[in-house]
């Protein structure tokens, strides 16, 4: 992008000569990205919006359907179920995931000597393929012979049936997701933590502030922009959860772990209802957009930029 001072300069001089050349080159270098965004994100988005007003089975010509897809969605008990499941998943994953990541990041921030090693260890699940992770966790969750219930039995707890229980399958998925995304959040938090200058802590120590007070009054406020970033990203990606569900439970048992994108996928590619699925996609888009806008709007009250 053209930097701000340059843009100011350009305004004054009415873009000519060398500056004009630079602008041209700038956009030229951006071209691959712009083309990519337009053809793979913006264009499909518009098409999906258009398709949501049609009845289309992919194989035969589409028929204009007006708002019927949208009307049907709100009468579809399965959609309401998967919508609730998605909210459950987001509410379970995001706050807990951020909270745990923050604790780990603060703890890791002190162990400065081994920080690189720990960072790598916690980051491992993030780079692991979801398929491999899913298989390992399926084993861990096996209600009869699995590792988790084996461990729980030592402390006298008869573990639940996890993935084969309609009540516990979703918590089980939430645990896997938090575990898998933890490393990513930790690394971002660590970067944020290391950006806080030591002088504040020094001053606080001289004033006799306790460790808790330091965390509460210095670390947390100065980390707020990082927390905000992680919250927004986590909420968006949690709304779009698909892999874990598709691989580990395929929405079961009894659709207790089916989420919007999973149901959308089924409608588009298994039920031959591409228009209906597109309408669902648009509703999901609207939901994510509004949640994000609310977050950005509320951010003014708790996020502090700059030090």
């Amino acid at each position: 992008m053209v930097t701000r001072p340059l843009r100011r300069k350009l305004k004054k001089r009415k873009v000519k000569g060398i500056a004009y050349n630079e602008v041209l080159w700038g956009y030229l270098f951006l071209l691959p990205n712009i083309v990519g965004v337009f053809s793979f994100i913006f264009f499909p988005l518009v098409i999906a919006l258009g398709l949501s007003f049609f009845k289309w089975d992919i194989l035969t010509p589409s028929v204009f359907f007006g708002l019927k897809n949208y009307i049907k969605i709100f009468q579809d008990i399965t959609f309401l179920k998967v919508f609730r499941n998605t909210i459950y998943y987001v509410a379970g994953t995001v706050p807990l995931g951020i909270f745990i990541a923050l604790i780990f990041a603060v703890a890791l921030n002190r162990a400065s000597r081994l920080i690189k090693l720990y960072r790598a260890i916690y980051f491992l699940p993030v780079v692991c393929s979801m398929i491999a992770v899913a298989i390992v966790w399926q084993w861990i969750y096996n209600p009869e012979f699995g590792f988790l219930n084996f461990v729980l039995s030592f402390i006298g707890i008869k573990g639940p049936k996890w993935l084969s229980s309609t009540q516990w399958a979703m918590p089980a998925l939430i645990i896997v997701s938090i575990w898998k995304g933890l490393g990513f959040n930790i690394v971002i938090f660590l970067a944020g933590l290391q950006g806080i200058p030591d002088v504040y802590y020094e001053a606080a120590r001289i004033d006799g502030a306790s460790a808790w007070n330091q965390f509460w009054r210095i670390t947390l406020p100065l980390l707020s922009s990082t927390t905000f970033f992680i919250t927004v990203i986590s909420v968006i990606s949690s709304f779009q959860i698909f892999d874990q569900v598709f691989i580990m439970t395929d929405g079961g048992p009894a659709r207790s772990t089916s989420v919007i994108v999973h149901y959308l996928y089924q409608n588009a590619f298994l039920y031959f209802k591409m228009g209906y699925a597109s309408a669902m996609g648009c509703i999901l888009f609207a939901a994510i957009l509004s949640v994000t806008l609310i977050q950005v709007w509320r951010a003014k009250t708790w996020v502090h930029y700059g030090i």
Binding site: I140, N142, P143, F145, G146, K161, L163, S164, M248, D250
Partner: peptide, 22 residues
């Protein structure tokens, strides 16, 4: 019959359960 019911979703597959005498 044991609880683990969704064939694809249990770590130990049915063949292994039969083999190990579960």
């Amino acid at each position: 019959s044991p609880d683990a019911f969704i064939l694809q979703n249990i770590g130990m597959n049915a063949a292994q359960m039969l083999e190990t005498g579960r």
